[in-house]
Amino acid sequence: MFFLNGQSAREGSTLLVQKEQNRCFLQNQVFAWFCTNQSSPKLALNLRQMPSLQRLNVGHPDNFINWFCGLIDGDGNFYFTQSQKGSWTFVFKVSQPNYNLKLLTYLKKKLKCGSVKKAGKKASQYYIKNPEVLFYYLLPKFPAHAFLTRKKAWQFSCFQKALDIYMQGKTNKISVHERNLFLKNLQQQSKEVPLDFKVQHPNKCKNYPSLGWLIGFTEAEGSFYLNLKKEKCLVHGVSWGQKDEKELLEAIRFKLNIQVKVSLSKKNQFFWYKLSTTSIQTIEKLVPLFEKKIKGIKAVEVRKWARSFRKDRGNYEALKKLQYNLRQAKKHTS
């Protein structure tokens, strides 16, 4: 049986420090490799100039990497594929509706690499495709057990192994035939999470998940809304939803001291687990956790939602107007 153990924020910070200590060594390695193989020394120099963990944490008092991992657990994707000509492509991406393009441009500006492009009529994505940038810059920044959802943890595990094999092939440590054989096998494995692959979540731990991860995950999967409780009575609510992550939602419930239990929801033939609360006492505690910490367009929603909670709670007409305006804003920016 496969297991990934959950970790505390303190353990995660220690691992991040260790990763950062190795960063300069890794970048010296890639620079030497590029020069030796007459590749692009310009790319190696660019890798050296990319932001350190300390710089990334500016504007993220709860840790940028933890926030980034939470966002990826919700809306990120790691995959690799082989073209008909036999070449391999490795891609990391974060997808968002067009109305939240602000979040994708924030990632590009913060990480100082990657690109943003449209992905259909209603969505866009931030992506990194350069395997050297992925291998030497992005992946070393993630701590052990960075991802808390089964799907993303398994996906990342396969991606990380595949990219390592690809780089070994590029430096002639293994043959092209061996490389392709290993990569095809991993690609097949990555398509479906094994039933016995588990991410273990600590039982009743106030430090788990970390606040940074929770803010990032909420950026992707959280909803700050107004719910019609009864006729002419709108109440403030917060919710999170996941298809196969009841234990993770239970961990969030315990961390935030939410009294309502995780429930199973259904729409048509689709089932998912949902954690939600409309408790005034709970929301009073949640507002300072998320207000001014969300980076995408949801920051505007949270600010207006929180302000109305403080000033307009119980005022049906004011809340109805806000609900309408928030819905229209999404439509006009899609």
Rank of each mutant, 00 (worst) to 15 (best):
F3R: 02
L4E: 03
R10G: 01
S13F: 10
N22M: 07
R23E: 10
C24R: 14
F31A: 13
W33D: 12
T36N: 03
N37A: 00
M50R: 15
S52A: 11
N57C: 00
I65H: 11
G74A: 12
G74V: 00
D75G: 06
T81V: 08
Q82T: 00
S83A: 06
Q84C: 00
Q84T: 07
K85G: 00
F90Y: 04
L104V: 00
T105E: 13
K108Q: 13
A123R: 01
I128G: 00
Y137R: 05
A144R: 00
A146H: 05
R150G: 04
K151I: 07
A153M: 09
C158E: 09
Y166Q: 06
T171Q: 12
N172H: 13
F182I: 08
Q187H: 10
Q188I: 07
K198H: 15
V199Y: 11
H201A: 11
K206N: 09
N207H: 15
S210R: 07
L214T: 05
E221S: 14
S223L: 15
F224G: 03
F224L: 10
L226V: 10
K229Q: 13
K230G: 06
K230I: 10
H236Q: 05
G237M: 11
K243G: 04
K255P: 08
L256W: 10
N257A: 08
I258C: 05
Q259W: 15
W272C: 09
K274T: 12
I294V: 13
A306G: 03
S308G: 11
F309G: 02
L322N: 13
Q323W: 14
Y324A: 06
A329L: 12
K330G: 07
K330E: 12
